Amino acid sequence: MPTTGDLADDLTAAVRGSEIFAVYQPQVSLESGSIVAAEALCRWRHPRLGDIDPVTMIGVAERSGAIHALGRRMLDECLETLDGWRETGRDWAVAVNVSPLQFADESFAAHVAGEFSRRQLAPGSLVFELPRDLPPVGNGAVLPQLHMLREIGVEFSLAGAGEESPSPELLRGLPVAEVKLPGELVRAAERPATASLREQVEVAHAHGLRVVAEGIETLTHLDIAVELGCDRAQGFLIRQPHSEIVFP
């Protein structure tokens, strides 16, 4: 079994090669039924060990410092994907998971801003998914970067597990446009949907935020998302993650 150090060395090399790639899971509007966005999910296919669990990969990347190179690689690949969608007339957004540690590098926001301008991306076409637990955001160097990126058109989504609604202080303090309902909570819900899920949707809508239900695997899950008043949904029922950048 490789050590964390071995995996860190392997990951550093993988970022420069073809072992790291993105798969995309569409999000649909529950109002129109049309694809409006896709979440980019990072995958690592190790030449000896096979597919590395994403949680393990991100943990190794954050502890080793490789998260910066990995995040830049994923961002650049997703922006190329956006260009491909636009060329085929698909006006979709791409959502990318980012680690708060990436904002410790002050050049990250500048790079994003430069790419946003160079590629002439439409506001809202790039979404960064942030975890709900954001201790680094209190750092004075991080929050200004979030607001700067929001001003140029990058949107932020608050994701991650949680049975309680994000606090009003968090929603007011962060420039978020979206809240995601964790898939495990949606799948565990019974009809009528639980009060905690309903409260999360109501709080988000009260702050002018859209709500995405994750982990939709059955028609019952989809019915719950509609019943809750969610704006978008994603999950295996709608489409499994795929490396192709064009969905029919």
Results as ranks from 00 to 15, higher is better:
69 A>G: 07
93 A>N: 04
40 A>N: 08
114 G>T: 09
44 W>I: 01
46 H>V: 10
227 E>M: 04
167 S>F: 01
109 A>F: 08
127 V>Q: 06
42 C>R: 00
185 L>C: 02
138 G>R: 09
45 R>L: 13
93 A>K: 07
21 F>R: 13
40 A>P: 02
197 L>F: 11
148 M>R: 15
184 E>S: 12
24 Y>E: 01
139 N>H: 11
158 L>N: 00
166 P>C: 01
193 A>F: 08
103 F>P: 00
149 L>M: 12
131 P>L: 11
122 A>P: 09
11 L>N: 04
149 L>H: 07
121 L>D: 02
6 D>G: 02
63 R>H: 13
91 D>T: 12
10 D>T: 05
241 P>S: 06
96 V>S: 02
220 T>L: 09
179 V>G: 01
5 G>N: 11
64 S>K: 10
202 E>M: 14
221 H>C: 01
115 E>P: 00
52 I>F: 06
195 A>R: 12
183 G>S: 10
88 T>N: 14
197 L>M: 10
90 R>W: 08
247 F>A: 03
47 P>A: 09
199 E>W: 08
64 S>R: 10
10 D>A: 15
10 D>E: 15
11 L>D: 01
180 K>R: 15
116 F>M: 11
195 A>L: 13
20 I>S: 00
86 R>P: 02
13 A>H: 12
204 A>G: 06
100 P>F: 05
56 T>E: 15
51 D>P: 10
107 S>H: 14
12 T>H: 13
140 G>I: 11
196 S>A: 13
3 T>W: 09
216 I>Y: 09
100 P>Q: 03
219 L>C: 11
207 H>S: 04
130 L>S: 00
239 R>I: 01
64 S>W: 14
214 E>H: 12
235 G>M: 02
63 R>P: 00
6 D>S: 09
122 A>I: 10
204 A>N: 07
95 A>N: 07
87 E>T: 11
205 H>C: 08
44 W>L: 00
218 T>S: 14
179 V>I: 13
36 V>S: 05
211 V>P: 02
91 D>F: 11
185 L>H: 12
191 R>W: 11
215 G>N: 06
57 M>C: 03
192 P>V: 09
69 A>R: 13
170 L>G: 00
20 I>D: 00
72 R>H: 11
162 G>K: 06
124 G>W: 10
205 H>R: 14
